[in-house]
Design a protein around this nucleic acid. Structure first.
Lengths: 126, 126
DNA sequence: TTCATTATTAACTTATTGGTAAAATAAAAG
DNA sequence: CTTTTATTTTACCAATAAGTTAATAATGAA
């Protein structure tokens, strides 16, 4: 059972938003309070608070307590899982398309239709 | 300009679904027609068709033509970008929590409150 | 031409997401 | 106690996502 499907889903979902990725990037500079995290964004505090909740539920951040502040810090373990998952595809992007297969792929992303027939119906415009 | 924000967003969104990840996994075995791809899933053809469109728009698959079949194949380049993105966080999960900082983190996920004050209000249960 | 196969599009439903403004809560400070 | 600061919760809305069934399209075969 690799990483756990639901965990991966939660992680990818959390990462599928530029605001949340920017928050993670910011947290690489160190623990940061919500207000500070919010500053760079043209967005209300509650919106940021929601994003933080998503990140927290994905295990990508953890939060502390400091008076009325709730400092966030990066929790990178789920990214480790992403790294492992994506690594299983490495050979598919490293594979420097070479040989006949590469030739075929490059010259005919769509093969020129083996035995292409007449095409009786004109295609409707879309 | 790292990878491109929108591209990363599209990629992570596409990956944030277990059906789509399973489709990608299947495609590591080779080019496959839509019907074949659909078989393992308890889901209608149109649903799979939609998933494929999401993957295609994210650049994670490419499609050919073979008679009435539309064979799909893996296109891993966006995963390369994911790999690069996630690699920038590697030190945060490799950082084998050691020394005082690690001690603090492990024994007190929440620091015992520097100058913790009385705590006048009992916290409501949730 | 007609039929069978393969896949997509259309129309619709329901759930989730991302945002808002306003109210509530928590803790510190006056 | 009252006020200020920091953050979350609630209630709401619009847009998107994921699924369905029914209809349409494209191709090959009879």
């Amino acid at each position: 059972m690799p990483p756990d499907n639901d965990r991966l889903t939660a992680t990818f979902s959390a990462l599928a938003d530029p605001t949340r990725r920017a928050i993670l990037a910011r947290l690489t500079l160190g623990e940061t309070a919500v207000g500070k995290l919010a500053e760079p964004f043209d967005m209300s505090l509650p919106a940021i608070s929601k994003h933080l909740k998503v990140l927290e539920r994905a295990g990508l951040i953890a939060r502390g307590h400091d008076a009325q502040r709730r400092p966030c810090r990066l929790a990178a373990e789920p990214l480790h899982e992403v790294s492992d998952w994506v690594a299983t595809y490495r050979r598919f992007w490293e594979q420097r398309l070479d040989g006949l297969e590469a030739y075929l792929r490059e010259t005919q992303a769509t093969p020129p239709a083996r035995t292409r027939k007449k095409r009786t119906n004109a295609r409707k415009s879309r």
